[in-house]
Design a protein around this nucleic acid. Sequence first.
RNA 1: CGGGGUGUGGCGCAGCCUGGCAGCGCGCCUGUUUUGGGUACAGGAGGUCGGAGGUUCGAAUCCUCUCACCCCGACCA
Length: 577
Amino acid sequence: MRLATAFMPTRKEDPVEAEVVSHKLLTRGGYIRMVTRGIYNFLPLGWRSVRKIEQIVREEMDRAGAQEVLMPGVQPAELWRESGRWDKYGPELLRFQDRKGSDFCLGPTHEEVITDMVRGELTSYKQLPVNLYQIQAKFRDEPRPRFGLMRGREFIMKDAYSFDVDEESALKSYDIMFEAYNKICERLGFKFRAVEADTGNIGGSRSHEFQVLADTGEDEIVSCPECGYTANVELASIKVEGHGRPAGVHLETIQPVDTPDVRTIEEVSEFLGKPADQFVKTLLYVVNEETIAVLVRGDHEANEIKLRAFLRDERGIEIEELRMASDVEVKEATSAPVGFAGPVNLHVPVYADLAVQEMANFVVGANAADKHFVNTNHGEDFDVTTWADLRQARGGDKCGRCGGTFQAYRGIEVGHVFYLGTKYSESMNANFQDENGQQKPLVMGCYGIGITRMLAAIIEQNHDENGIIWPMAVTPYHVTILPLQYKNDAVMAEGERLYKELSDAGLEVMLDDRNMGAGGKFKDADLVGIPVRVAIGGRSLEEGVVELKLRDGGEVEKVPVGEIVDKVIGIVQSRLG
RNA sequence: CGGGGUGUGGCGCAGCCUGGCAGCGCGCCUGUUUUGGGUACAGGAGGUCGGAGGUUCGAAUCCUCUCACCCCGACCA
């Protein structure tokens, strides 16, 4: 590609709305442009890298025995009504009507369509297992798109769906996908972790996320160096040492204190001069119309996913609705404004996190405006209905599996694998006949990879202050040639020669034939991030050499013009593996 | 959805408070200059000031409504 006529609009300045480095560099480097919030154009360079990522994913999916299909972006409401998700999915599902007034949506995921596609076709156990995938644009009307390609509303995803005869076989399919995802992340050069995860509203029971480690990631994960247990903080189980208060601690008498107009833990903590870990937070939730209280230590975070699992598994509650109580409901339950809720004389079920069990003489809200209690003790001043692990894990917590100490990381979720079971096949009547002639629902799994999110994640892990540093596997071009003096015919001719010979050898080559100064060419080359750079200057050319430099480091190397072609080919081939 | 903010040539911004010629830097075009990390000078093109309504002799500026976008909190590939 010749830059003189290429559509590669680079910029000197960061886009004002960009927060993270991948968004800044993709925009400045001429890879993407925003069309409207959460929706992007992929310019020629950006699209080349997207297609390379797609191709790697495609190769690994095919190798794992999956078959590629393409489903529509526009989906009829009937299928969603059949699965029950038309009412459950919420405003993230973009809905609209056709000219006849029939309901449609833009596909945020494709369980319904794929189940519809195979039902009536996969009718015998002899046809199974089958795994189908597609690479296609999804649309989710995210409440808050941000960070460029990391959380768009329209994004490219690879989604795969497996169909098996029973759970055992389905878990084999799951493991095959799990391995394929590891392979894909390795080929893309990611530093990543496969972590145990929540299943969200896709449904199902077993699930792993593939998290690329990056400080800008939106997810928090913890990992135990002792036993290798790694999980999203939403899910990670925490071991609590011992039980109850430390022996010999003297229990003080509960006392009310005035706390005028201080509500949050930080405010009260500062006001009373006590650290947050001597507070107990009282959070009110509404479960199916009933108000409940959840207690966690002041410096801990309650975890709605654990709470949900606890209510379902330990309390046997069929959860229709679980949400934080509204201001009005808080007032009803505590007869105080928001910010002063506490467990003393609170007439709702009280579920407390295990960490609270070890606390004594702590501070709680007094269920009255501008008042808190100090020296509060569970068992003395209030009763806890049930103790449970209800908080989010964090670095330094004890591993729930082995008692080791968790390390915390931030991650970008680029992939997610689910064991679905028969959730969709049952609701949508996708059955097959087993070897005994019995009708059985297909057992399913589903597997997603955010292709365009991966593009952003690669840059988050591969950049410096000057720009992108592409891994050879996904760079839009392998090598860039910079003839530095555009009025020097010998320099330009040498550029043309290298461009032709390297292209003829099968490499993807960029030639900066623009009529501009050397400085601008160097700046753009660093920004755009092509891994191999060959600079041709008038003086060094007279000495019979050109200058080779790799984007990921090292010094400029002078290479005789007769050797440069073979040398570059060697570098590119060795890096492509 | 809740809270905070911004909309002015392609990009980044000033002007608004206190109404009176629509400006600056970058980029772009022409010429000269420079020729190894965004050279310098001169000339030039390009804007319904997000939109609608109102106040006024006069509105980018004041008022009302509206739309869009950004940032901080609950979701997900």
